[in-house]
Design a protein around this nucleic acid. Sequence first.
DNA 1: GGATGTGAATGCATTCACAGCA
DNA 2: TGCTGTGAATGCATTCACATCC
Lengths: 217, 217
Amino acid sequence: MRRLRATMRTSGIPNPAIRRLSLYLRQLDLYSQAGQRTVSSRQLGQSLGISDAQVRKDLAYFGQFGHSGIGYRVDELVARLRNILGTDKLWNVVVIGAGNLGRALLQYRGFMSKGFRLVAAFDQDASKVGKSIGGVVVRPMASLANVAEEYDVRLAILAVPAAAAQDVCDDLARIGVMGILNFAPVALSTGTRMVQNTVDLAVQLEQLSFQVKAMLE
Amino acid sequence: MRRLRATMRTSGIPNPAIRRLSLYLRQLDLYSQAGQRTVSSRQLGQSLGISDAQVRKDLAYFGQFGHSGIGYRVDELVARLRNILGTDKLWNVVVIGAGNLGRALLQYRGFMSKGFRLVAAFDQDASKVGKSIGGVVVRPMASLANVAEEYDVRLAILAVPAAAAQDVCDDLARIGVMGILNFAPVALSTGTRMVQNTVDLAVQLEQLSFQVKAMLE
DNA sequence: GGATGTGAATGCATTCACAGCA
DNA sequence: TGCTGTGAATGCATTCACATCC
């Protein structure tokens, strides 16, 4: 049994705060599109179910960019959040696994405008190799290292069966990938130079099950 | 601007603990398949990157079902966790939206054995209605209420575009759905008799981006 | 007046450390 | 001896409340 390292903190900033920054950014994009110029911590918080103090504290971890009496300038804050999250630069991302989920992800275009670009997909199954899905070509696993180097790939989306996930994860670590968005229902064992984010649909549904069950009683 | 209610706690049990119960269950299924009969809090924790004390405390919230000197009996604990999470009964689930993601979810069979059954899919687009995907028929939105009643549906998976999500959410609330697994990148505004769990892929990637960025510096 | 930014206070969650049991 | 269950202690995160600024 391999031993997992516990989740570690990257900095002095609370992990939940970093998650909320993403939510702020998403909401601010909406405000920006709607033509709104400024926003208060109160308004931003209410639209997300978060207290105004929490919003201010989260933002203040990264400096002072509010304006007394005014609030935050939407475009300014968007730019700053992108910079903080690292999505002001474009990340090249690979998708491993071109099954149902992998294909759906390749066709989902919601990433593009947000600082991520899917540059290639990989599948072990030769019959899938060569096809183009959502404008991205499916390649053989053997070409992973080359592609990763060519595009300086640091992020990967893992959409392979659970049984294969750890092996692929090890491969990815070896070629310099440092972040994995993992859709396989397993806890990956990774080194210290790698972070993972596992999205397990069954886990998600179980959370709902628990809570709905409680409401029904 | 609609105001969201803050996340509330269902009981005296820490929310993070409930999330971990799902992880324990997932891991225990593996042990069970491998023929392992008992497991200690230490072993279970290590395989998930969680401390042994944490494991024991999480489980102890729900009673005492460990055995001194032995640990926990795997099958017994699996049964108990299913019971706690509510997945010892079968939940009928509907999928709203038969686009890329909706289709992928319908074809993903990983739920079945875990207490969830996809009973129907719905789409607004008439050209999709009538098709069968992964053994599930796509129906018109208009038939949602009937199906929900017929199958006593309490859980829904939302895979519609962001712009449509809130309206669908309101519909779902009206017909008695109480839990939503939301893949649209918006914070849904719900009443008190409803819980949501939003999986936003961009948010997930942004978390990785932030952390990988920090590691590269 | 209407906001931010922030120390202080509170409230949660996790870990420690050990009694107790097989 | 090996392990659980649990109060006590610690450590984090959130909220309060107010000085401060436009």
